[in-house]
Amino acid sequence: MHRFTRWTDQRVEDIIGNLLRTGVIFSAVVVFTGAVVYLARHGQAPVDYRSFRGEPSDLRHISGIVRDALAFQGRGIIQLGLLLLIATPVARVAFSIFGFAFEGDRMYAGFTLIVLMILLYSLLGSSFA
């Protein structure tokens, strides 16, 4: 296969396509696992989403979410799955930087780096703003 011997747009897009699909499937499986645990334990409790209280701080940050998920809490596992889902497009952007760099396109590697910085700021830095 000739087109797989070099880094071309098509090859980069093929890899990105697989990355996105894997990310979505994997996060859906994690969310579903968390759902089973959550519903089995808290399914009979009443629902209240009428007023906004905001999530407890452990479900707002990566370290807290991982800790809750490892403690096998349903809501923590679901939140971990959602975090993986949010990370999927971020991983796609990060991979694109390498793709453009291997193609020798420094201008677009730079543009993509800007997008990645914005995404990382949102995920990691926005809580301090």
């Binding site: 968390g34 959550y38 989403y49 905001g54 999530e55 407890p56 701080s57 479900l59 707002r60 940050h61 349903g74 809501r75 923590g76 679901i78 939140q79 959602l82 975090l83 949010i86 995920l123 926005s126 809580s127």
Partner: peptide, 8 residues
């Protein structure tokens, strides 16, 4: 997520 808007 950081502001607590995403409820699992």
């Amino acid at each position: 997520l950081n502001r607590g808007y995403i409820d699992p």
